[in-house]
Design a binder for these strands. Sequence first.
DNA 1: CACGAGACTTGCCTGGACGAAC
DNA 2: GTTCGTCCAGGCAAGTCTCGTG
Length: 604
Amino acid sequence: MKRCFCVISRFIYLSTERNKGASLVSNVRHDHTRAAAAKTLSDFRWEESKSSDSQKWSRLEHNGPYFAPEYDPLPASVPFYYDGQLLKLSPATEEIATFYAKMLDHEYTSKEAFQNNFFTDWREEMTSEERKQIKTLSKCDFSHMHKHFLEKSEERKNMTKEEKQVLKEESSRLVEQYGFCVLDGHREKIGNFKLEPPGLFRGRGEHPKMGKLKKRIQPEHVAINCSQDAKIPEAPAGHRWKRVQHDNTVTWLASWLENIHGRPKYIMLNPSSKLKGEKDWQKYETARQLKVCVNAIRKQYKRDWTSREMKSRQRGVAIYFIDKLALRAGNEKDEESADTVGCCSLRVEHISLHRRLDGLEHVVEFDFLGKDSIRYYNKVPVEKQVFKNLKLFIKHKDPEDDLFDRITTVNLNKALNECMPGLTAKVFRTFNASTTLQDQLNKLTAEDMTVEEKILSYNRANRAVAILCNHQRAAPKTFEKSMQLLQEKIQKKKEQIEEAKRELKAAKKAHRDAPSDRCRKLVEKKEKLVQRLCEQLKKLQLQETDREENKVIALGTSKLNYLDPRITVAWCKKHNVPIEKIYNKTQRDKFTWAIHMTDESFQF
DNA sequence: CACGAGACTTGCCTGGACGAAC
DNA sequence: GTTCGTCCAGGCAAGTCTCGTG
């Protein structure tokens, strides 16, 4: 498998290198396409790939991370008052105050947890003098700071073109210096070369740590990873790195521990890199592998529904949910984070069982907060045996008890792995998402459609996946307004059509009454106008449908993470839709591998 | 097996660039 | 020229899963 990808990756490099003849590129592609076609799924050796996969590179060199600029103290003209008294804060204290002052408009500064966390952490950073004086948050007056930053941002908006140009050049110099690394002889883009600046932590949902201080990262906190023979990046003057290591079994260039949860964070490559692309390709191949054995797995979990062992029954139902509803695995979480769940961590309170609902039998009603505190709400008719089992699982339990108390993500994944090497809960999401896209595209695309209609079909297929995976977004702030505008446009267009039709009729009549070349030409002209207007109307109406259906659905996540790009590429080729209409520049870069290795016959 | 550390993927939001409409 | 709206890259939080250790 590994070897197979090497062919592809060599091709990608070839094709992205300048001054290479097009004929060479197409030759490579041709060869590869055949090689890939000849390769069947059973040829993949997962065990083998596992050992060889552990080495991620042989040579790695980079310039280290870019540190956030030092704090620039406020001008003396921006006062801070405590309890009505002017107070000059020390730079460190002032800096943290500005984090809060910048957020005053946000709803969450009104939350008690946010205020308490912020104030506790702020006081910890104060000088003892300041700590003695500043005892109550509500007595702090940040309003002048707040105003100062509003003005600053206004200033920034009103910069001249030239000033903006200067900034732009500065930032591209930064990218030039820090934004790339050299991995195995190839210059690769780094994903996030800038270290996160200090600020206030705002978790998602009801996060118990909201408002806590995210501290400034110092070089002494940062570990550097590069190859032994590489030039070690220089630490900022007067500083040294936490450590420099040469571990080629990992892909990160730099890492540090964030202070909120004490979890590691990393600087890694951009998705367009070979390293990431290879991994991505592997992911989809695993998902395609599941396609081959999913029937057997389904049979197995259905058998488990009637197992004598409670654990097996629970696992059978859990995998059924993961498969049917594309739920996430649902690892255990600690108390120090928002209360969200996935499949294995579902609690009794998250489901309601309805013997009969809306004319359907055995309906399970799900209502819980999933990843990022996004609500999952769904009413699903299930097999009778699943229903029976669920009743059994919740018997004698309290609402806050685990629904699946005998299983964990670890043993669930272990069981899955025994069915198919490499299989874990999340593979089902990839598999179901990509399968859905393929099915929907096949169903929704017709040859006689215009390109616009085909794109609408694609978006609908994409949307079906997003709904399956529960990818949501906040409705755009301007949604209502822009929708209304669009409707007015449509109305206007309709009126134009009426008008044009009347004119056409009149022209026809004139031509009938007194045929002439001039009259005939006028009729033709009017006919064309009507036709053109109708086409425009259709386009607008398509746009309206698309936008309405998309109001709270986020398509990006599935497009980027769940849909095998080869499905899209093949579809575009087959139906003559330019790939640029579906993938923007970033997406094309990320999916370069797929764009080059896929021909129109590919099916997931 | 439980646990925690570590590595890597997935996820939503936002600020600013850019183009269209006024 | 200004305003408005859309799109996208970047930001960073929050998941999943693996591995080593006792």
